[in-house]
Every structure is written in structure tokens, then in C-alpha cells.
Amino acid sequence: MIATLLAAWAATIPAFAAPFLLATVGLIINERAGVMNLGAEGIMAIAAVVSVLISLDGGGVGVALLGGVAAGLVLTAVFAVLAVLLRVDQVLAGLVTFALGIGISGYVGDGYDNQTIPGLSALPTSLFGWMPKTLAGVLDQDVLTYVAFGIAVLVWYIIEHTDLGLRLRAVGEDAPAADAAGVNVALYRLGAVLAGGVLCAVAGAHLSLVGSHLWVDGMVAGRGWIAVAMVTLARWNALRAIAAALLFGAIQALVPQLLSSGLNVPVYFIEMSPYLATLAYLLLAGMFANGADAQPVDLGRPYLREERR
């Protein structure tokens, strides 16, 4: 009984973790370049709804994904203009993006609630037939989930080991010094924001195309906000983000399992635990390991060469 429960739980974790992972990695790209985007929730929502609308209109999964990403990219561009070009306080710009995304997604999705779409299903089970059953359950995921984990590794490699990543980090750590070294700060920040927005949008599309196979108003349900906090938990490192996403995904995957099992457990306390864990981690990091040092120094600070500081 317990073993079946655990196996069923483990099999659902990757798909729960993938949207967290995509959004968190996207925000890590942003923040390593010195930009904090609180609008992830809105970008995810708009991508989720547009993907569903395209699917309902008969579009294939690939087209739906592309459409969702394009919609998310347009919204991200609004944030990029506000935060990078107009130098609006990043918290404020992020909140505007959040509200625009949630508001517009509610608008365009109005009347299409709860209409199911085919979505993206898992790879054929036959591929995994030769494996032990539990492992096959865990590995039998859809393509997009695999892509999510692949992207995390790729982004980690680019940020930590390439010249592109080096310049990105320099912009986030010390924009004036990066400027002096010939890096175009605004261009790198714009690029980072847009790239991060694409990943947030893929995360949103994953929610509707893989997760729910439908659109409901409010279905992002705070995952974009959680991603903002998970960046801290991952210490701005895309590889660690995999672990953080698996933690949050595991807890979220656990709740439906528990509810369907009929066990009498404090569900909301269990749901609360990853938030408490993140808070505890933040505080412990501050207490011991010079934790805040992992945060890019110029995070949240707009840069203009003519402003002498």
C-alpha cells in the first residue's frame, strides 16, 4: 500500500517540478544580470491561456507552445522596457507586469474556462517497458518536462562556463565595471530579461499543456511567486534550482496523493512546509555562510552611465 503510494507519488513529481524549474531558471538568468522580475506569475498565466486558446482553435501542441511563448514574450517586453530602459523601480515594474498578465489572461480566457484540450501526453509506455516499474513511472514523462531539466543544465553551463555567461554575471555584479570592460549593460539586461521571460512562458504553457489540459482563471496559483523565492533557495545557481524545484514539486505532488488516499493528515501544513523551508534557508544563510553574498551585488539597481555613483 505504502509502496504503491510512493511509486505513484514519485511518478508525478517531475511534471509538477518542471514548471517551477523553468520559471526559476528563467528568473535566475534575469537576476544574474541584475534584474528582479516579480512579473513571472503574470507571464506564466498569459502563456498558459494562449496555449489553451490555440489548442482549442485546433492548433497542434507545437503551435500552441510557440503561441504561448510569443504572448509571454510580448508581456516580458513591457517589463523590459519599464525596468531596463525607463529605469522604473524593478519591484514596481514587476508588479505591473504581474497584474497586466493576470488581468489580460482573465480577459482573453473568459468563456473558455474548463474546456479540455488534448495537450501533451507522456512518452509511450512501451519505451520504458524493460525497466523496473517504479523507475519507468518516474522516467515516463512528456517531452517538455525533459526539455525543462535539459534547459536547467544548459543554462547552468552557459552562465558559469562561457564568455556570454561571464559578461552576464559581470553586468549583474557590477554594472559600471562591466560597462568599462566594454559590455553593453542595457543590451545584456534586455537579453537576459527576454530570455528569462521565454522560460517563464514555457513554464506557463507546461501548466496548461502538460498539467491541467485546460484553462481556469487563477490556475497559475502563485507558482510564479514561488519561483521568485526559489531563486534564493537555489542560490542563483541553475543546477541547484533542479533540487529546489524537485522539493516544491514533491510537496505539491504529495497533496493530491494524500487527499485521494483518504489519510487524515494536515494537508495545508504540508503545503506550507516548502515556504517555511525557504524562509528558514534564507535566515540560516544570513546567519552562517555569508548567505546574501550569493545574491548579485547590483540586483535591482538600474544603471545609467551618466549617473555618477
Binding site: D163, L166, R167, R169, A170, E173, D174, P176, A177, A178, A180, A181, G182, V183, D293, P296, V297
Partner: peptide, 20 residues
Amino acid sequence: FKLVGPLSVLENIRLACAKR
């Protein structure tokens, strides 16, 4: 100095000179 403090010596050199 226009150095990026949290980066290493070699990273700072690569940042400033790799292209040129």
C-alpha cells in the same frame, strides 16, 4: 578600480580582454 569584485582574477581579465 573597475573590477568586478565577486569574480576571479582570470574572469576579470577574460571579461575585459577576451574579445580584443
